[in-house]
Amino acid sequence: MLETLSIWLAANFGEQTATWFEYFTNGKHLAWYASVRFTLIAAFFGALLAVLFGVLGAAARRSGFAPLRWLGLGYTTMVRGIPDVLFFLFFPLAFEQLVEFVMSRRLCSAEELATAVAWPPCQAAQWYLTTSEYLIMACVSLGIVYGAFAANVVHGAMNSVPKGQLEAARAYGFNNRQIFWNFQVRQMWVYALPGLSNVWMLLLKATSFLSLLQIADIVQWADRLGAPNYLARVGMVHPDWRWKYYFVLFLFYILLTVISERVFDWLQRRAGRGLALHGEQ
């Protein structure tokens, strides 16, 4: 289909247009366009997990059980002092090692375990990760890191729920658990939305790290496509065009930000219907 389109372009718009069309639809470029899926999957599932971890973290932080409260506090504090990229690399690598550790206990001989200097102790315990496994780990990683940001937002939003609502619920005879999940968590979303939109923007930008986990994402493809090519039989001969490809990514992320902003504005208006929110109306 692409070939017929190319011939049609050559006939109607000249050889030049067809050449460029062929260049932008060659296998590598198609792979580049397709690799956007990794970014979108990581952003979507990372965000879902981040909201989940956020609610759980905030719930832990206001738990009546002290160790759980400390855990929640530790979780929400960790993002304050340590860069996200460190966690982003740490969780997948640590998980991989943990699995290999368990596998090495089962698969390697006692002799190998005692004498091994490299990791894993024997070849059988090596876990070769595929792209999809790395992608899952990237989603979980993003979820954990930005879940800590979200937990801070959710924690603040829960405090913004009018106390009268919770007291009314108590007066109606709801127990603590019901009050928490059915009233406080239900009502906090509208207060949490501006903060969560901020977390989403951070998470979206962090999806550019996928190539650090060996995923052939848009960044890696941009690097490959832009690399200079001097062999005519490989494709179009061009000097170092990487900056052009990175510039496209630069614009791509700005576009994603614009779209996200629109969507969150709409959500905010929708969620605020019928509520006398401070600062609006």
Binding site: K205, W243, Y246, Y253
Partner: peptide, 13 residues
């Protein structure tokens, strides 16, 4: 609106 990671790559290239 864009990742610093991309900005680094872009300006370096």
């Amino acid at each position: 609106g864009s990742p610093l990671f991309i900005q680094f790559f872009m300006f370096y290239s």
